[in-house]
Simulated assay, not measured.
Amino acid sequence: MADITTSSPSAARPATRETAFRVRMRRLNGVLLRLLSDPSAALGLAIIAALLGMAIFAPLIAPPNIPDPYQMPRDWSAVRMPPGTPGFPLGTTNEGGDVFYGVVWGSRTSLQLSLMVVGITVVIGTIVGSLAGLLGGWVDEVLMRVVDVFLSIPELIFALAIAAVLGPSFTNIIIALSMVLWVKYARIMRAQVIQIKQNDYVDAARVIGDSKLNIYLRDILPNSITPVSVQATLDMGNVVLIGATLSFIGLSQAGIAEWGVLVSEGQAGIASGRWWASTFPGLMIFLWALAFNLVGDGLRDALDPRTEGR
Rank of each mutant, 00 (worst) to 15 (best):
N223D: 12
W76T: 09
G266C: 15
L287F: 15
P86Y: 06
A186H: 02
G97L: 07
I153K: 00
S247Q: 07
L131R: 01
A55W: 06
S7M: 10
Q198G: 02
R74L: 13
S211C: 00
V240R: 12
D301P: 10
L111Q: 04
V31D: 13
R27M: 13
P69N: 14
Q231P: 04
Y216S: 00
G44I: 08
L28R: 15
A78P: 04
T233R: 04
L283V: 06
D235Q: 05
F57P: 00
F280S: 04
F248L: 10
A12I: 01
D210R: 11
A78R: 11
A55D: 08
S7D: 11
S130H: 03
I225Y: 02
V147L: 01
L221V: 06
V79D: 13
E95Q: 14
D301C: 11
V139R: 14
D140A: 02
N65W: 11
G209C: 05
A302N: 06
G96R: 00
I127W: 00
R274K: 13
T226S: 05
Q198N: 10
M116A: 15
V165L: 13
T279Q: 05
V165Y: 14
S247N: 03
R218L: 13
A2S: 15
V165A: 09
E18F: 06
S114A: 15
Q253N: 14
I162Q: 00
I56S: 03
W276T: 15
T233D: 00
V193N: 02
T226L: 09
I173D: 03
R274V: 08
G129R: 01
I56D: 01
I47F: 10
T92C: 10
G30S: 14
L290Q: 03
V202R: 02
V202S: 08
V31W: 07
M81D: 00
A12H: 05
I173K: 12
I249C: 13
V228Y: 03
F280I: 11
T5V: 13
Q71Y: 15
A58Q: 01
N223A: 04
A254P: 12
L234I: 13
G91T: 08
R108C: 01
L143C: 03
V183L: 15
A2G: 09
W276M: 15
A204D: 05
V117T: 12
I215C: 02
P83H: 01
L115D: 07
L156D: 08
G255W: 02
T85P: 00
Q231F: 03
L51R: 07
S130L: 06
V183T: 07
L262D: 08
G97S: 09
V261W: 15
S37G: 13
G298S: 07
Q198K: 10
N199Q: 06
V118D: 04
